[in-house]
Amino acid sequence: GKMTGIVKWFNADKGFAFITPDDGSKDVFVHFSAIQNDGYKSLDEGQKVSFTIESGAKGPAAGNVTSL
């Protein structure tokens, strides 16, 4: 299901971020390909987002990341 959280930090050079979920679970890795914005895919620290949890090769990662 959809979860919500806050972007903890975003590394534009490497194209990934971490989200701190609102439910208090541990921070979730985000690859820029999961960001659903049109055009430039970036996130801002402190931004509120919704996302799903996908199981990636290196463990859980956020999918369908959308700005709220």
Rank of each mutant, 00 (worst) to 15 (best):
V7I: 15
L68H: 15
L43E: 01
S33C: 15
E45M: 12
E45L: 15
D22Q: 04
D27N: 06
A34I: 06
A12Q: 11
L68N: 15
M3G: 04
V49A: 01
N37I: 13
P21N: 02
F32P: 02
G5K: 00
G1K: 13
K2R: 12
V49N: 00
D22C: 14
Q47W: 05
D13I: 07
I6A: 03
T4Y: 06
M3P: 02
N64G: 07
D27L: 04
P60C: 15
G56R: 07
D22Y: 03
D44V: 13
I19Y: 00
W9Q: 03
L68D: 15
I19M: 01
I53N: 04
G39V: 07
D38N: 12
T20L: 05
N64C: 15
D23K: 02
S25E: 04
K48M: 07
H31M: 10
Q36H: 12
S42C: 15
F10W: 11
E54K: 06
V30S: 00
G56M: 08
W9E: 04
G5L: 01
V30D: 01
G1E: 11
A62N: 10
T52N: 08
D22R: 01
S67Y: 02
A17R: 00
M3H: 07
P60L: 08
S33K: 05
G39C: 14
S55D: 13
G24M: 03
F16C: 15
G56T: 14
K58E: 14
N64R: 04
N64T: 08
D22N: 04
S67N: 15
S42F: 12
S67M: 04
Y40W: 14
P60G: 10
V7N: 00
S67D: 15
G56D: 11
A12W: 09
A61F: 13
Q36L: 14
G63Y: 01
A57D: 13
A61E: 15
D22L: 06
S33R: 04
N37L: 13
S55Q: 13
S55F: 12
V7Y: 00
A34V: 10
V28A: 02
V28I: 14
S25K: 03
V49H: 01
K48I: 08
S33W: 06
E54I: 12
N11G: 03
T20S: 13
A62F: 06
F32G: 03
G1H: 11
M3Y: 06
W9A: 04
K8M: 05
K41W: 14
G46R: 03
F29Q: 05
P21E: 01
D22S: 05
V49E: 00
T4A: 03
G5F: 02
N11E: 07
G5A: 01
N37R: 05
G24H: 03
E54P: 07
G46H: 03
V7R: 00
T66H: 14
G63N: 09
F10S: 12
G1L: 13
K8T: 04
T4V: 05
P21V: 05
P60I: 08
F29A: 04
V49T: 01
D27G: 10
K48S: 07
T66F: 00
G24R: 03
G56L: 08
G15P: 01
D27Y: 03
S42G: 10
N64V: 12
V49C: 03
I53C: 14
K14Q: 10
T52I: 12
V7E: 00
A62Q: 12
F18R: 11
I19P: 00
K2S: 11
M3W: 05
N11A: 06
A17N: 00
I6N: 03
P60V: 10
F16A: 02
G39A: 09
L68C: 15
A61S: 11
G63I: 14
D23Y: 03
K14M: 12
K58C: 15
K8H: 08
G63W: 01
F51N: 00
S33M: 04
F10D: 01
T66S: 06
Q47P: 02
W9R: 03
A61D: 13
G59D: 13
P21Y: 04
L68T: 15
A61M: 12
T66A: 06
V49G: 00
E54F: 06
K58S: 14
M3I: 08
G24V: 01
N37Q: 11
G15S: 07
